[in-house]
Amino acid sequence: MTDPTAITTDGATGRPAPSAGPSSPSADAGAAARRERLGHLLQHHGASLVLLGLAVFGTVAFDAFATGANLRAIVVSSSFLAIVALGMTFVIISGGIDLSVGSLFVLGGVLAAYGSRAGLLAALALPLAVCGAIGLLQGVLIGRLGMAPFIVTLAGLLGVRGLMLAVSDEGATTYLVEDRAFASLGQDGPFGVTWPVWITVALAAAGVVLLQRTGFGQNVYAVGGNEEAASLMGVPVVRTKILVYLLSGLLAGLAGALNAARLSSGVTILGIGLELDAIAAVVIGGTLLTGGVGGVTGTMAGVLLLGVIQNLINQVGNLTSAVQQVVSGAFLVLVVVAQRVLSRTQRLT
C-alpha cells in the first residue's frame, strides 16, 4: 500500500522527483515534506484506502459479496452505528469521549417505541428530547464544572442503562412500534434503500459542513487541539463542549429511534457496548483520541470498514461472530500503532 500512495502523493502535488544530487539540505526537506504529506494522507484517508482494498478482495473472493442485496445489507446495518459515530467524532475531536451513547441508543429505541403509540411525531420527539437533555446535562458537567468526560459519561452509561431498565420494567416489557408511518421510516425507502441510510448520508454531509465550514466546527477543532490557546483566542470553550455532548446525545437517541422503527420494537438488549464500536470506528477513521485532528468522512469509512469486515467473515461462513470482534480489535490496534508512527513522522519539530 505504501508505494502506490507515495507515487500518488508526488503526482498530486506535481513535485518533481528528488534530484539525483547528493542529499543536500533542500532534498532532505523535500523528503521530509513528502513524508509529511504521506502521513497526512494515511491519517485522513487510510480507512478509505483499506476499505477499498477489502472491497476489491471481497469482490474477487466471494461471489455473493458484490451483489446489490449484500451491499444494501452492509450499509443498512452500518447506518445506525454511523449516526452514533458521527456524534462521537465531534466529541473526540473536541478532546473528549462519550461512553453514554450505547445506553442512550438503547434508551432512545425504547422511548421511540413507547412514543410511537402517540404517533410518528412523538416517536421521534420523545427520544430526541430525553437523550438530548441527558447529553446536555453531561456537557454542562464536563464543560462548566470541568469534570472528566470519561467519568461523567461513564456515569451516564450506567445511569441511562438504569433508566432504560426502569422504563421497560427491567426488560420485561418490550414496547412494539404501533405507528405505521414510524415503522415505515425504518423499513422502507427510495431505490430499495431504507430511510436510515439516506438520513445517515444527509447527516454526514451536514456534519462535514458543520465541522469544516462553520464557526462551531472551528471551535471544536480549536478546543481539542489546544484548549488554552482556544480560550485565549476568544473561543467559547464551555459552550463548545456543552454543544458536542448535546449533539452526541441527540444523534445517539435518533439512531436508537430509527433502529426501533426498523425492528418494530424497542429492543432492550441490542446496542449494549455500541459506544465502543463507535469509538473504534472514529479512531479507525483517523481521528486522534487526543483531540484536534479528524473528520467525518474518515469516521464513515471506519464504520463501513467494520461493517465490511463483519460481512466478509459472514461470507466465509463457518466462522463465528466472535472472530469478527477479534479481527476488528486487531484492526484497531493496527490503526493506533500506525497513528503513533505517523504522528512521530509528522511531529518532527
Partner: peptide, 27 residues
C-alpha cells in the same frame, strides 16, 4: 508553545473567530 492550535491550518489559526463568510453564513 501556547497561543495557537498546532493541528489547525495557518489560515484558520490566523482568522479563528473572524473567518470571512459566504452568503449562507458558511466559512
Amino acid at each position: 508553545e501556547v497561543g495557537l492550535v498546532p493541528d489547525m491550518s495557518v489560515a484558520r489559526n490566523l482568522l479563528l473567530g473572524r473567518e470571512p463568510r459566504t452568503r449562507l453564513g458558511l466559512i
